[in-house]
Amino acid sequence: MNLKTSEIKESISELLELPKDIMLDLPRITLLGNLQIYIENHKGIIEYSKVRIRINTKNGILSILGTNLSIKTIITEEIIISGKVESIEFVK
């Protein structure tokens, strides 16, 4: 049922050319080289250390690996992470 509604939502947003991140409540991730990551619409931090940060989002856990990672800013809507980013992946 839930899967079906999201499918309908996706097709509607495609049809009306609406931004998908708003329709589907997805995180918007912006990378600035390998220096900074900007994540909008997150659902909280799960793990935080200098080499690994895991962030909860709507479609899974976003895991960031790197060195010297630190959280520049964190508010309800967005996180800015700086440091040397090596990899980003979604873990289901």
């Binding site: 799960i46 250390s49 964190i74 309800t76």
Partner: peptide, 21 residues
């Protein structure tokens, strides 16, 4: 449970910045 601490802080609308481990 430091992550929990951060999440609670965000939920309460407390602005934290330059967080380093």
């Amino acid at each position: 449970s430091l992550e929990k601490f951060i999440n609670y802080a965000i939920a309460r609308g407390i602005y934290l910045w330059d967080i380093t481990r």
